[in-house]
Every structure is written in C-alpha cells, then in structure tokens.
Simulated scan of single mutants.
Amino acid sequence: MRLAYHLLDVFTDQPLAGNPLAVVPDAEGLDPALMQAIAREFNLSETVFVVPPRDPVHTAALRIFTPALELPFAGHPTIGAACLIAQLRAPDMIGRQPLRLVLEEPVGPVVCEVVRVQGALRASFVAPNAPQLLGEIPDRAGIAAAFGLSEAEIGFDGHAPVVASAGLPFAFVPVASAAALDAIAPDFSRFGAAFPLERPAVFLYTRETVDPAHHVHVRVFVPGLGAHEDPATGSAACAFAAVAARFERPEDGEHTIVIEQGFAMGRPSQIALTMRIASGALVETSVGGACVRIGEGVLVF
C-alpha cells in the first residue's frame, strides 16, 4: 500500500512554528484501526484522514486521530485540512476569492472559508456546536496542586475556573500573571482529581501577553487526549468564547480575540477567535488562522 501524506504547521505563517499536523488526503477505504496506527506512527497531536463525504454536496469528510484515540472535532486539523484541500483541488480560485468548503466531522458539518493573504493561506470555520459553559470548578486547592500554583494566582477580574465545550470539553483556568503561567509545573497524576472531565484537558490563560497586539496568552495541556502540552488548540479556543462572553460581558456586535499559544514550547501560534454578540448573548463563534505546508511524502507498507 502507498499513501501520500502532507505535513503542515497550523496557526502560523512561519514554517516550524504553530501546531504540526499530518494529513492523508486520499484515505478512502482505510480501516479505522489502520488510521489509528498511522496516527500513532506520526506521533503528532493529530493526524487527519480525508475521505469522501456522506452528503455529495459537501466537500469532504474528515477522520481526526490523536496517537491514542479518534476525536469528534478539533480545530487545528480542521484549519489545516481545509487549507490543504483548497490548495490541492482549487489553487487558482484561492487567489481570486474566498473559497467555501463544508467538511463533515463526527460532530457535524463544519463550514470553512479559505483565503490567501499576502501569499499565506488562512482558513476559518464556524463552530459547529454553540460554545457552552458546563459548570464551575470550585476546588482551587486541587487546581493549584496540579500546576504548582498558589491559590492566590488563580483568577483575575472576576474570572474563575470553569468547564466549557464547543464539541470537546475543556477546563479553563485564569492565571493572574504571565510569570505565574510560565512557571507552572504540571503534575498529570493530579488532573483526574482536580478536573471533572472524562479526559482531562486544561486551558490556562492570562491577559499578560508576549505581543501587546494580542489579547490572551495561553498554555493548554491535554494528557487525556493523548498528548501533553499543545502548541495551538482551536477546539479550546472555540469553547473559550463562552468563557469570554460570561466574564467579559461584551457589548452587542462582533469582537475578535487574538490568542497566543505555544511560546513556552518554542512553537509560537496565533488563533483568531471571533464572537458575535446579539441582545447580550453569544450567537456565533468562528476560529481562524494561517497554515504553512512544510513537507510531503508517501507511506509504504
């Protein structure tokens, strides 16, 4: 068997930054067990397999695997796959106008748009599920122990630890300063007790950013999803819209939050989170970012 694959860096316009991704663009007929084995071989946070859509009016269907399990939805695989599909199938159209794709994922159809901006490919998608707050996390002592923080370093300006989801649930932990966030020491053995999630995934954030043009500095840990720290997490960014809407109470209109992530890993990433607020409620969420193709090859086995 010979399978072509492509390697991309997502949520960056620079090679060897952002979140790396492997995409197998012609995966029709592959058994899910083989997909899982290939994802384990690549050993990236996610590998995407592109297969024909169930609904012929859609562009394609995606199967997304971490090294350990299949996911119903993930952000950087959606952005990367959308950019690659557009580049392979309609390279001339991208330069003339935004290209709309509908990608089927287990969570549902995901509407994407791909454009070329100053030579770089960028994609965005509308969150397939409305971001929702699922509850508070009252055990600040447990959170502090899980990250080597003091309880006083958890929270700022009314922000408190919560669980939110836009298809995948994450715990969101506000941290008072960038210095505290940079100095955390995660103890994954404590995650199960500290966070009320079947598969622990934690998004820690502070307002103190590396780039003053950005709005939120983030570190994300996903041991429950088959990885440790993640350099860019689009699905968590989607869910963060519910957190921002709850604690910031933005006025009606469209708001964009630029999230910086991956700096502690040497893989700086930028995620654009756009929220539309109407009558005080979050009515639409989209996530976007750039993508760079850095390699390709053939699997032979």
Rank of each mutant, 00 (worst) to 15 (best):
E41A: 13
A166I: 01
T256A: 08
F203Y: 15
G95Q: 06
E284G: 01
A264Y: 02
L84E: 07
G119M: 09
P250N: 05
H214T: 12
A4L: 03
P212R: 10
M1T: 15
A193L: 09
G234S: 14
R293M: 11
L168G: 01
V110D: 03
S45C: 07
F240Q: 12
I294C: 14
E46K: 05
G142C: 13
A33P: 00
H58D: 13
M265N: 05
E198T: 15
F172H: 00
L69P: 02
G295W: 04
A290Q: 12
F247W: 07
L273M: 10
M265K: 06
V111H: 15
P109C: 13
P77M: 11
S269T: 12
E284L: 12
P186I: 05
R40H: 15
A22P: 00
E251R: 12
G289Y: 07
N19L: 11
A244C: 10
A120K: 04
V24I: 15
I259H: 01
V287H: 01
G80T: 10
A185I: 05
I184M: 12
A164L: 09
G158N: 05
F240I: 12
R190S: 12
D230K: 06
R100I: 11
M265R: 05
L99C: 14
T274D: 02
V173S: 02
A127P: 10
P138D: 14
R249S: 12
R54L: 08
P32Y: 10
A144I: 05
P268W: 08
A237L: 07
P131M: 09
P106N: 13
P109T: 09
D187T: 08
A178N: 03
V222P: 00
A264P: 02
V243W: 14
L273W: 11
T206S: 08
I271F: 01
L62V: 03
L168W: 03
E296A: 10
L168I: 15
D211W: 00
E70H: 09
L225K: 02
L149A: 02
I277R: 06
I38Q: 02
G148T: 09
R207Y: 01
S150A: 13
A278E: 15
A127F: 12
Q97P: 03
P268N: 09
P196T: 11
V48M: 04
D31P: 00
E229F: 09
I85R: 10
G148A: 08
G234R: 10
A130I: 06
S177M: 06
F49P: 00
Q36Y: 11
F156D: 07
E113A: 13
A239Q: 02
V243D: 10
Y5T: 07
V210A: 04
E296L: 00
E28Q: 15
V107D: 01
A4Y: 03
V162Q: 04
H76A: 08
A127H: 06
V117T: 15
V292L: 09
E248P: 00
E284Q: 15
P231L: 14
G167Q: 12
F263K: 05
H6K: 13
V202D: 02
R40I: 03
D9F: 06
P169K: 11
C291W: 00
A130W: 08
G253P: 07
I294K: 11
Q270S: 13
L34A: 14
F191S: 00
G18P: 04
V111D: 10
A68T: 13
E229P: 06
V300M: 12
Q97F: 13
A176F: 00
V50E: 04
I259Q: 08
A81Q: 11
V222N: 01
V163D: 03
